[in-house]
Every structure is written in structure tokens, then in C-alpha cells.
Computed example of a mutant assay.
Amino acid sequence: MLEGVKQKVHEANECSRGTRHYLVLWDNLKLVNGSLYRSFKKADQQDAYLQLIVPRVLRKEEIRDAHDSVTAGHMGVKRT
């Protein structure tokens, strides 16, 4: 696959399930400073957002970093 070039449908059939998923999202994907994002709008269609796509191997670490730090924003189940 060439970088930045969407594959043709018959070529996509030979790709993995994950790759095919991103091909479906192709028009909503953006590369910003080397990071991959998915653009989407809320149901009200008013606000557009960019959602960072984190590689599967880094997801647990990212979730831990976002939730377990002192500045994470909540104090756990017992204190909430």
C-alpha cells in the first residue's frame, strides 16, 4: 500500500480486518504532526472533533496514564 493513497476495493479484500476498517474511515482520517486522528461530528452536527487513534499495543498504557495520575480528574470508585 502506498502511503497517502487509498486502495481500490479489489485490493482491500486482501488486507487484514483492521486495515479494511481504516479504509472505510479513510475520508475521516487526518495525519497531524505524525499522529493519526479520526474526525467526527457529534449527533447534533454542530461541533467537529479530532479523536486520536492510539495503536492497540499502547492503549492500556494510555488509559492508565489518563486515569491513574494525580491530575486525572476523579478519585476512584469509592470516593466518587
Rank of each mutant, 00 (worst) to 15 (best):
R59N: 00
Y37D: 00
V9T: 10
K6P: 12
S16D: 04
W26Y: 14
V77W: 11
Q51A: 14
D65G: 03
V5N: 06
L23G: 04
L36P: 01
H10V: 12
V57F: 11
K8N: 10
Y22N: 06
F40P: 03
L52Q: 09
L50G: 02
L52I: 06
L31K: 15
K6C: 10
M1H: 04
V70C: 08
A43E: 08
H21D: 06
E3T: 13
R20T: 00
I53K: 02
R56S: 08
A12P: 00
H10A: 10
T71M: 15
D27W: 05
N33A: 12
K60Q: 11
L36T: 03
N13V: 06
L25P: 03
V57M: 06
A66R: 08
I63G: 05
D68M: 14
E3M: 04
Q46W: 01
E61F: 10
L25Q: 11
D65N: 15
H10L: 11
D44R: 00
D44S: 07
V57Y: 09
P55L: 08
K6Y: 02
E62F: 11
S39D: 07
Q45T: 00
E62K: 12
C15D: 07
S16E: 03
E11S: 09
G76Q: 07
L50C: 01
V24T: 14
V32W: 02
S35H: 15
W26P: 06
I53S: 00
T80Y: 14
A66F: 10
E3H: 13
E3V: 11
K30F: 09
R17E: 15
R79C: 07
Y22A: 00
A48H: 00
E62Y: 15
T80M: 08
R59Y: 02
E61R: 15
F40I: 01
K42W: 00
R59V: 06
Y37P: 01
R20K: 14
V57T: 08
I63C: 06
M75Y: 09
G4R: 11
Q46K: 12
G73W: 03
L36K: 01
I53T: 01
D27Y: 09
W26S: 04
G76S: 03
Q45I: 02
V24L: 15
L31Q: 12
V9Q: 12
H21S: 05
K41Q: 05
A66N: 08
H21M: 09
R59W: 05
K41C: 05
D47I: 09
G73R: 02
Y22F: 15
K41A: 01
Q51H: 07
K60V: 05
N13Y: 08
V9W: 11
E61I: 05
N28Q: 15
L50F: 14
H67F: 14
N28E: 09
P55H: 06
H21R: 07
D27I: 05
D27E: 14
G18D: 04
V5A: 12
C15Q: 06
S16V: 01
R20Q: 15
L52W: 09
S39W: 04
N13H: 06
V57K: 13
R56M: 04
V5F: 12
G34H: 08
L29K: 09
H74C: 11
I63A: 13
R59T: 02
L52F: 06
R79M: 06
K6M: 10
L25C: 10
